[in-house]
Design a protein around this nucleic acid. Sequence first.
DNA 1: TGAACACATGAACAAATATTCATATGTTCA
DNA 2: TGAACATATGAATATTTGTTCATGTGTTCA
Lengths: 110, 110
Amino acid sequence: MAHEEHKEIVQEIKANMPNADTLFELADFFKVFGDSTRIRIMCALFERELSVCCIADIVGMEQSTVSHQLRILRQENLVKVRRDGKQSYYSLEDEHIQKIFEMGLEHILE
Amino acid sequence: MAHEEHKEIVQEIKANMPNADTLFELADFFKVFGDSTRIRIMCALFERELSVCCIADIVGMEQSTVSHQLRILRQENLVKVRRDGKQSYYSLEDEHIQKIFEMGLEHILE
DNA sequence: TGAACACATGAACAAATATTCATATGTTCA
DNA sequence: TGAACATATGAATATTTGTTCATGTGTTCA
């Protein structure tokens, strides 16, 4: 490849790329899906809202581990909480999540 | 919540969850999207196939860094390579990627 | 053939991350 | 109020991960 042609291509692609900050945010967003504990938590929440101790039972991990991970999910607006007495009930924030999930499944099941 | 009711819920959800192995694979798949360098590489490849050195120029990182990341993308079947003389041209493997990308963008731009 | 180039890869290091333990916060109910 | 329970959080640790440097592999062309 000629050097000049190379430069042109690089310039053109750079110009069409989304804002760098946006791409960093996007990576942070997908990072949340990149852990099996969080994936399992989200998967459990597809069915219904659940308390923290239920989730801990389902994924077979410590309550504190689950609390930490739920905080991460909250920070990225993937889940919301509802307090009811002593318990906190978590549920999914929106339906993008399930779609992203399904697309991932489609890919790996090919 | 009564203890017995808790158990029932846990059992039911567990029964409906996908295979644990599948969820681990899914997490590994999304892990690939969870790094800004890889996101930027994929984003560049939306436009057209590119050589390694072009990609390195576009994302502003070392050639070896890009090669390492491309290997990870290859391992998860997200990109494919074509050799042409001294250069390797990378391109996206399928169109799931762009859809997943767009859904992520929709989420963070809300 | 051998020099020059493009790319791939192993080792080393630094930074980020997940988990656990211990403990703090907040709620209920006797 | 205080004991019991559910959840949240800080600190410590082990592991994973991304980047770089140095070098290996494969290709072209003089």
